[in-house]
Each structure stands twice: as C-alpha cells, then as structure tokens.
Deep mutational scan, measured.
Amino acid sequence: MGSVRTNRYSIVSSEEDGMKLATMAVANGFGNGKSKVHTRQQCRSRFVKKDGHCNVQFINVGEKGQRYLADIFTTCVDIRWRWMLVIFCLAFVLSWLFFGCVFWLIALLHGDLDTDYKDDDDKSKVSKACVSEVNSFTAAFLFSIETQTTIGYGFRCVTDECPIAVFMVVFQSIVGCIIDAFIIGAVMAKMAKPKKRNETLVFSHNAVIAMRDGKLCLMWRVGNLRKSHLVEAHVRAQLLKSRITSEGEYIPLDQIDINVGFDSGIDRIFLVSPITIVHEIDEDSPLYDLSKQDIDNADFEIVVILEGMVEATAMTTQCRSSYLANEILWGHRYEPVLFEEKHYYKVDYSRFHKTYEVPNTPLCSARDLAEKKYILSNANSFCYENEVALTSKEEEEDSENGVPESTSTDSPPGIDLHNQASVPLEPRPLRRESEIGSRR
C-alpha cells in the first residue's frame, strides 16, 4: 500500500517518465508532432483561472445545437444578457408577425380586404367582416399587437362572423401568456443567479507553507467582502497533476483530494472575517514527500473551492481559484488583518494578500521532518523571529508614515537576534492585533 500511495502522490514527473511517455506515443502511432509532453521546463496551462473560470474549450460535440435547444431554459439562463435581450425582442416580434399574417390571411380569404370602410357607412358590411377595420397587412399586424398586449384601442375587434378568427384570438392570448411567463422566468432566474456573489468572495493571491502546531501546513486565505453571511460555508481543495499509471496509461489531469478537515468538520467555516484555511501535510497528503526545492521545480495546480448558500436567496454559490506551484510561498505567513478595537473588531483588507517571511522554516519535506531528519529550532526562537518579522513590518510602515526611528523597538546594537533566540524570552503579545485562523 505504501508503494502504491507514493506512486499515486508523486508530484514532480521525472525525466524517465517523460521519455517513457514519448516512447509510448511513438510506439502507439501518436508521434505526429502534435502531442505535447509536459516536462519541468514546460509548465501546463492553468486549468482553473484565478477568477474561477475553467480554462476549457469543448470541440467536436455531436448534436450540440439539439442538446442546447432541448434544455432551452438553461440555455437562456446561461447566455449573455445581450443575447437574452435579442431573444426577448424576437420572441414578441415574431409572435406578433405570425398572428398578424394569420389574421391577414383570414381577412384575405373572407374577402374583407376588398371592402373600403372609410367611404361605406353600411354597418351590415362591417358585421360581415371577420375582424372589423382590418383591410391590410398593417392593420392585421396592429390588431395582433393589440390582442397579445391587451391594449385594446377599440377600432379593431373580432366579430362572430368567422369562428376561426375567434379561435385565433383565444389562441394568441394563451401563447402570449406562455411567452411572458417564459421570458420573465428566465430573466428573473438569470438575475437571481448567485454567480455575481463570487465577486465579493476573495482568495489570497498566494498560498503559503509554514509551520503550525509543530507541523508543516499548506495555507491559503479566504474572505467575504459583504456583511451578509454565506450560510453553510465549506471549503474543498484538489491537486491536479499528470501521472502515468503502473500499466503505462497517461492521465493528463489526475485529481487528488486535499484534506482540509472534512473528517473532523473544520472544513465548515464561519466566514465573517478572513480565515486562513489549513491543510496539514501528513502522510496522507500529496505534498508529504515534497521539499522546498521540489515545490520550486514541480508542475501541478491546486484548485480551491468555497461553497455556501447566499443568505438573501438561499441559492448555492461556488467560488473557485487555483494556485500553481510557483504561487506557493515556502516559509511565509499571512499578515494579520483582524484588529481588536474598543467595542468592535476591524478588518483591514489592505493586508489581505500580504505575507511575511518566517525565518528558520524547515526546507525539507514533511516526511523528513516526521522522521527527525531535520532538527527544528527552539520553539522560543521560532516565536521570537516570528515577532521580529512582524515588528520589522510595523517599523517599515512607521518610517513610511514619517514616525521617528527613535520610537521604534530596535534591538541594541551589536546583538545578533538569531543568537539571542536560544535565550528564554518573556511572551510578547501583539500590541493591538490578533489573527483569527482556522485551528486544527
């Protein structure tokens, strides 16, 4: 089982795998120059863009038009607004034209077009017409509009002379109601789609790998820009990579689940303020055997998904993003964004995407760390350097704002901070800030 798991979770494809794949392509008759073999020097295209759209195009789909027309309502909801407006206008105009032609044909076959009612006051002739005051196609078209929109100006009306005319008036009224219901329903469904809710759900630009509770963890940050909550919010993550099976089958995008606390339930989050999602790199993680150097040379993509129900409509929305291997910062942490004021908490989104480097973060893999092949620094050293990194950030910001350097908390000259780390230190809580992250 261990060997199978290692093969499945191998992220960085070796040169031997690339040569094996190329040999397979030639042997199977696919070596026509169009096949692409992804190596370390040639990274694959992003499968999920940063804005959440999937970078996929469908080609050679059989009976595409028929399949889309069979699900016309979903098609109308998914198309762009400009095409929705075109369909909206065409549906009414074509129905008016169709029934206008029908009423014109009825008048033509009944002989109503030969009668001039402007110079004739004989009401008996008017009563013999199928539709009064309809003696041309324009008049028939206007009567069709008046019937379907129930305008009723009063000059044109159907008589009991022709039952077919009466039937067409009733039929057009029913068709008009159906068109109204369909168009209004599609427009309302399109307006109520929770897709735009994703514009106020954000992911951090970069993911980070750092120590948390004595273990290497992959972390990324999510935030909600609205005050309205995302009900039943939960997160998922998958690692996408290519691999070759033991039988020699090439899988271009193998999807591997990344555990973010599904078993323990901590994948469900209360997204009021930005939260750091934590994936513990343990023996079940696809990143277990990867060191910093392996991450730098790897070719994979981590897709992160945030799902929840919109509070206003109770409709489920899904926000997506992805991180390539070069977008994962090893040995970094996110800057705090949640600050405790006197009577409330304040979230500073200008710090949302910012990170700071944490010294002495192990550069080895989580496996080597678990097997004690890498000796961690003293816990006080880690905490102290973590505090120094934050303090230096604040000093830089104070210097930019014009604060005198004498007010900063610099260490005395001639003292090495790293050498001082081995000395037991008193706890130094942050002056006014605390970061709330997901705790395992």
Rank of each mutant, 00 (worst) to 15 (best):
V169W: 08
S144G: 03
Y374V: 14
E16D: 07
A312C: 11
S291H: 10
S285C: 00
F47G: 02
I302K: 00
G331L: 01
K292G: 04
K190V: 03
M168W: 05
G52V: 00
E307S: 12
R40M: 08
N386L: 02
F98D: 01
E371A: 08
T6Q: 13
P194Y: 04
T361Y: 03
K190P: 12
S3R: 02
S204M: 00
K128H: 13
T245N: 14
V278L: 10
S14H: 06
Y384I: 15
D51Q: 08
V134C: 05
I295Y: 03
T355I: 02
T409N: 07
A181I: 15
D180C: 12
H418K: 12
I79A: 06
L240C: 11
N32T: 14
H234W: 04
D119Q: 01
A370R: 11
I72Y: 07
T245Y: 10
T313G: 11
C162K: 02
D282V: 10
W220M: 04
Y334C: 02
G154Y: 03
A140I: 00
N7W: 07
K128C: 02
L216E: 01
H418Y: 09
E435F: 09
P427K: 04
G154C: 05
V304P: 02
S10H: 04
D120T: 00
C157I: 09
E199N: 13
V187I: 07
G52A: 02
N206M: 06
Y344L: 12
H343V: 06
D348H: 00
T138E: 04
L216A: 01
K196H: 08
D120L: 00
E161Y: 02
H229L: 12
R212F: 05
M168G: 07
L94R: 01
L306V: 11
L430C: 12
R8H: 07
D78K: 12
A389T: 09
M168S: 14
D289A: 10
A91P: 02
S381Q: 11
I328L: 06
F98P: 02
R44S: 14
M24D: 13
F300G: 00
G308I: 06
T317K: 05
Q66N: 13
S14D: 11
K393E: 09
T276Q: 10
Q293K: 04
S377L: 08
N55S: 13
T147P: 01
G214N: 13
I277T: 02
S14P: 13
R82W: 10
I79M: 05
A233D: 01
S408K: 12
E435Y: 04
K36H: 09
E161F: 04
T361V: 11
I209D: 00
V169S: 02
G402A: 12
Q42V: 10
T150S: 12
I184D: 02
G29M: 04
V347D: 00
F339V: 10
M19H: 08
E435K: 03
T23V: 03
A314V: 09
S422R: 07
R333L: 14
Y153C: 08
A22E: 08
V303G: 02
I305M: 07
L324I: 08
K215Q: 12
K373G: 14
G331F: 00
P286C: 02
F155K: 05
P252Q: 09
M24H: 13
N135G: 13
F88R: 02
S204Y: 00
I295C: 09
V175D: 02
S14A: 12
Y250Q: 15
C89Q: 05
S422T: 09
T138A: 12
A107M: 03
H418V: 14
M219R: 00
V93C: 11
P429T: 05
S35E: 15
I178V: 08
T39N: 12
L338T: 13
V166W: 02
M219Y: 04
S14L: 11
G214F: 07
V12Y: 07
D282Y: 02
H343N: 07
Y374S: 15
T276I: 06
G31M: 03
P427G: 03
G65M: 15
V158T: 00
Q172M: 11
H110D: 02
V303K: 01
S285M: 00
D71H: 10
V4H: 09
K190E: 06
S127C: 03
D17S: 07
A389C: 10
E340I: 06
C157E: 05
V158H: 00
I275W: 11
E426W: 03
L324W: 07
I295G: 00
V134N: 00
Y323A: 00
M19V: 11
T150N: 03
P286S: 00
F141T: 14
I178P: 00
R221A: 00
P429E: 14
V131L: 14
T149F: 02
K227L: 07
E394V: 10
I258R: 01
P429Q: 11
W83C: 03
I79S: 08
T276R: 02
V187T: 11
G62F: 15
S204A: 09
D17I: 05
S14T: 14
E396F: 06
L329T: 03
Q42T: 12
S273D: 05
L287M: 07
Q66C: 15
E387T: 00
H229R: 12
M84A: 07
T149C: 05
G33S: 11
V187F: 11
V26K: 14
S132P: 03
I281C: 01
R367S: 03
M19Y: 06
S422Y: 10
D410V: 05
K393L: 10
Q66Y: 10
L271S: 04
T391N: 05
A139N: 15
G176H: 04
V158F: 02
T75I: 06
D120W: 00
R243W: 10
L201M: 12
I106M: 05
M24E: 15
H110N: 04
T313L: 10
C319F: 14
E435C: 04
V304F: 04
N7M: 06
P359K: 09
D51T: 09
W330L: 00
D257W: 08
S13N: 09
G331H: 00
V347C: 12
Q41L: 06
V170M: 04
L225N: 10
D296H: 10
E232Q: 06
A129G: 09
I183C: 14
P359S: 10
E341L: 04
K128F: 11
L69K: 13
R320G: 09
C89V: 13
E247V: 11
T159A: 03
E280L: 11
V131H: 02
H38L: 11
T23E: 14
L218V: 09
R197P: 07
T23D: 15
T147Q: 03
I145M: 11
I258Y: 01
D17F: 05
P424T: 06
P362L: 02
Y9D: 15
F141G: 03
G214T: 15
A312H: 08
G2E: 09
E283Q: 09
G100S: 04
L290F: 10
S322L: 00
V388N: 15
N135D: 09
I79T: 10
G29V: 06
T276G: 05
D213V: 03
K373I: 10
C101H: 05
L97D: 00
E340K: 04
E15F: 04
D282C: 08
K64R: 10
V337S: 06
D160A: 03
N60E: 12
V231S: 11
S406K: 07
V347K: 01
Y323L: 11
L108C: 07
A389N: 15
N419M: 14
V388P: 13
F203S: 01
V4T: 14
V423L: 15
I184H: 06
L287H: 00
L109S: 15
V175K: 01
D160T: 07
I11P: 09
D122L: 02
M191K: 04
S144A: 04
S136N: 09
A389D: 11
V423R: 09
G152F: 03
Y68H: 09
G248D: 14
K241R: 11
K227M: 08
L306G: 05
S399V: 11
S13G: 11
N206I: 05
I415C: 15
D254R: 14
V102R: 00
C383D: 15
E341R: 05
V310W: 09
I174A: 06
R367D: 00
L430G: 12
D299Y: 03
I183W: 12
V403M: 13
A139C: 00
V86S: 15
L306C: 04
H38Y: 05
V56T: 15
I258E: 00
K393F: 11
G65Y: 15
E357W: 05
G414Y: 04
V260Q: 00
F137Q: 06
T200Q: 06
K196G: 12
E387K: 02
H418M: 12
T23A: 10
F262E: 04
E394G: 04
D71T: 13
R431E: 15
T75Y: 05
I244S: 15
I256E: 11
A139H: 05
D121C: 01
R67Q: 04
V158I: 06
S422P: 11
I281K: 00
H38Q: 13
P404N: 13
S204I: 00
E341S: 07
D257S: 10
